[in-house]
Deep mutational scan, measured.
Amino acid sequence: NITAAIYDEIQQEMKRAKVSQALFAKVAANKSQGWLCELLRWKENPSPENRTLWENLCTIRRFLNLPQHERDVIY
Rank of each mutant, 00 (worst) to 15 (best):
I2W: 03
I2G: 02
T3W: 08
T3K: 14
T3H: 00
A4C: 09
A5V: 15
I6V: 09
I6C: 08
Y7A: 12
D8N: 02
Q11V: 13
Q12A: 05
E13A: 00
E13W: 00
M14W: 09
R16H: 15
A17H: 07
A17E: 03
K18H: 09
V19S: 13
S20N: 02
S20D: 02
S20P: 02
Q21I: 03
Q21L: 07
A22S: 11
A22L: 12
L23V: 05
L23G: 07
F24E: 00
A25D: 03
A25G: 10
A25S: 10
A25I: 05
K26C: 01
K26I: 02
V27R: 13
V27W: 11
V27D: 01
A28F: 03
A28K: 00
A28N: 03
A29W: 04
A29V: 04
N30P: 02
N30V: 07
N30S: 12
N30W: 08
K31A: 12
K31C: 01
S32P: 10
S32W: 09
Q33I: 06
Q33T: 13
G34I: 11
W35L: 08
L36G: 02
C37V: 09
C37L: 14
E38S: 06
L39W: 05
L39P: 01
L39V: 10
W42M: 13
W42V: 07
N45M: 05
P46S: 02
P46N: 03
S47C: 01
P48L: 09
E49F: 07
N50S: 07
N50V: 07
N50I: 05
R51H: 04
R51T: 11
T52M: 11
T52H: 15
L53T: 07
L53I: 11
E55A: 07
E55P: 02
E55S: 10
L57G: 01
L57H: 12
C58P: 03
T59N: 02
T59M: 14
R61G: 09
R61S: 10
R62Q: 14
R62Y: 03
F63S: 01
F63Q: 01
F63H: 12
L64R: 00
L64H: 02
N65D: 15
P67E: 14
Q68H: 12
Q68M: 06
Q68F: 12
Q68A: 12
H69L: 03
E70A: 02
E70H: 03
R71C: 11
D72W: 04
D72P: 00
D72S: 08
I74K: 02
